[in-house]
Amino acid sequence: MSATIVQAASAPSGLDATPALAVHGVSHSYGSRKALVDVSLAVQQGRFTVLLGLNGAGKTTLFSLITRLYDTQRGSVDVLGHPVARQPGAALRLLGVVFQARTLDLDLSVMENLLYHAALHGIGGREARRRSQAALEEVEMADRARDTARKLSGGQMRRVEIARALLHRPRVMVLDEPTVGLDVASRAAILRHVRTLVRERGVAVLWATHLLDEVQPEDAAVVLHLGRVLAAGDVPDVIRSAGAADMRGAFTALTGGAAAREAE
């Protein structure tokens, strides 16, 4: 199969055209199981890009490669022009990550969790404390700073994780199914907060989800199914090229079609 054509969703004016995150022709297998096949996608600076895929589509493998848990077997990942494999330090500094699994240390307080993360980015002392305090205020969790993470609800943990991911002021944020397992109100609050970051601070976001109602018309979207990119671009373009009326229709048409082709 030839490389999937990725229509670069256009970047907002005022930023240079280097994609915030660029994945080129990435394939990855675990033994004989192919998790990703020739995946290419781009997240433009200052855009909210949704990575849509069902469970098992390869989203988590893609996140492992973007965050360099391990290197790509084929293809490359660049963060603002820095290849993750060759310049991991430079790439990871620009990247804020929220993993699907809960990653707060439950035995530590909320503040201690943030200070630890700051230290992992070489930020210490008063500066770390100041940034942590500000980050918690931003997600309205400042009053919980001294509580152990164990006492927080799922939605609160996520908010703290997002605050933590922003401590080192990354320009690109990747979030792997951040709203899974949360109630409707928490989901909406987190989504709203991250969209604000994109709008007001120009952070580029890759937001992985299988929930179609999290997609907005002004977003860019990438549809990942069984390890392959089926469509990518601005949401209206993806819907139009799939010949559907909305994103739900487009997703069904794209993935249903692929499933049908596989069945042949």
């Binding site: 965050t67 991991p88 500094r93 993993f99 240390d105 993360h117 992992l120 980015h121």
Partner: peptide, 16 residues
């Protein structure tokens, strides 16, 4: 690693 704390350590930009 399963809980993800190890993942947080490994996404630090310092050399592994």
């Amino acid at each position: 690693r399963e809980m993800g704390n190890m993942r947080m350590l490994l996404v630090s930009p310092f050399p592994r």
